[in-house]
Design a protein around this nucleic acid. Sequence first.
DNA 1: CGAGGCCTTGACCGCGGTCAATGCCCGTGG
DNA 2: CCACGGGCATTGACCGCGGTCAAGGCCTCG
Lengths: 195, 195
Amino acid sequence: MSEEKRNIINKVAEHYTPLGDACIEEYIKSTKILRYDKPTVIIKEGEYSDKTYFIASGAAGAYYLKDGKDISDWFAFENDFISSVNSFILDVPSPHYVEVLEPSVLLEISRDEVNRLTALFPEVGMLGYQIVVKVMLQLQHRIVSLQFETAQQKYDNLLKIRPDITQRVPLTHIASFIGITLETLSRIRNPKNRI
Amino acid sequence: MSEEKRNIINKVAEHYTPLGDACIEEYIKSTKILRYDKPTVIIKEGEYSDKTYFIASGAAGAYYLKDGKDISDWFAFENDFISSVNSFILDVPSPHYVEVLEPSVLLEISRDEVNRLTALFPEVGMLGYQIVVKVMLQLQHRIVSLQFETAQQKYDNLLKIRPDITQRVPLTHIASFIGITLETLSRIRNPKNRI
DNA sequence: CGAGGCCTTGACCGCGGTCAATGCCCGTGG
DNA sequence: CCACGGGCATTGACCGCGGTCAAGGCCTCG
C-alpha cells in the first residue's frame, strides 16, 4: 500500500530533484492517494484550496469562468503537479476550477505538510523552486505564442508538444487554452481550409 | 561603503523575506554594486549571464529580437530583481538583451554565490522561491491581458499598475510589452480617438 | 426515439496590423 | 546660432485574421 506511494514519490524525485531516503519516508506520511475513475471537479471556484496534487497517472485541467465561458488556463498530465496555484500559494479563494479529465491517480499534499517537509529537508525547498520555475518557463512560452502566432501556429505548436492532447481533452478546452474560439479551431482542423 | 550595500540588502529583506544578520553579512560579501548614469545594455543576446541584479534605484528592461524588431518582455523598477532569466536559471545563451533604462544603481550577484548562500541560509532559498513566484503571478496576469483585453484596456491597465511608465520608458517598448504596435498605441493615446 | 453535448459550417464585420508619409524634438557640426 | 539628420511618435488608408451569431450535423445515453 505505502509501496504504491513510494513508487509515486520516486517518480517525483526522478522528474524533479533527488530526494533523500529520510525525506521520502516523511513524504509518504504527509501525502494521500486519490483515485478518480471519471471526470470530476476537485476544486471549485471560490473555495480555498491548500492542496497540491502530483499526477501519477491521468490528466487534469484548471479553468476559470470569463463572461459565462470556461477558459482553460492549464493542463497537466502524468508526472506534472497541479493545484489552484493562487489559492495554494497566496491563500486566497481559488479563481479556478480544477478538474480531473480522465481516470487518474493523484498524490495529494497540503501546504502545511509542504512547509513541514521543507523545514526538515532542503531538497523539498528545491523541489518547490523547480516546480515554480517550470511553470514560469511554460508561461513565458505561452506569452510569446499568444502575442505572435496565428491560430494555426498555436494549434500546431501545441500538437508538437502534446500530440495526444486531442484524444485526451475536449476541443472546447483546447481552443480556450490557446486563446482562440472553438469555431476557429474547428476550421483550422478541417483540412479543406488549409492552404 | 559597505553601509550602502547593507542598506540595499535591507530593502531586499523588506520587500521579499526577512534575512538573518549572518546572512546579510555574507550577502554583502557576495555582491557588487554597479552604477549607470545613462541607458546601457548590460546583457547582450547570445551571451551567457549567470548574474541577477537587484535594482536599488532606476529602471531596466529585457527585450528580444523578433523579425528585426525589439520586443519588450519585462520591465523592472526599484526594488525589483532583473536578469536574463533563461540564462541565469538554465545556463543557456540569453535570448534577451537586458538594458538599464535610466540612471540606476544595481546590486549584482552570481548564480554561484546564490547557491553558496542558499546552502548556508534557508532564507535565501525562500528569497529565490518568492522572486520566481512573483514573476509567475505577473506572467499569469499578462496572459489574461493578452488573451482578452483590447489594446485600450491593456494600456489603461498598465497605467493603473505603473502610472509613471510613460515618463520612464519609450512608447515603442511599452507597445511591444503589451503586445500591440506602436501605431495602435499612438492612436489610443490620442484623446480624439477615444469614444 | 428524443434530448443534450460537442463539434462543424456559413455569413458577416470590426479590431488592430501593415505600409507609408509626415511631424517633432534634440544633439551635433559648420 | 542655425541647419541638418536621425530617432521617436503621429496620422492616414487599407485589409485580413479571427471573433460573433446562428444554423445544422452527429454522437451518446436515458
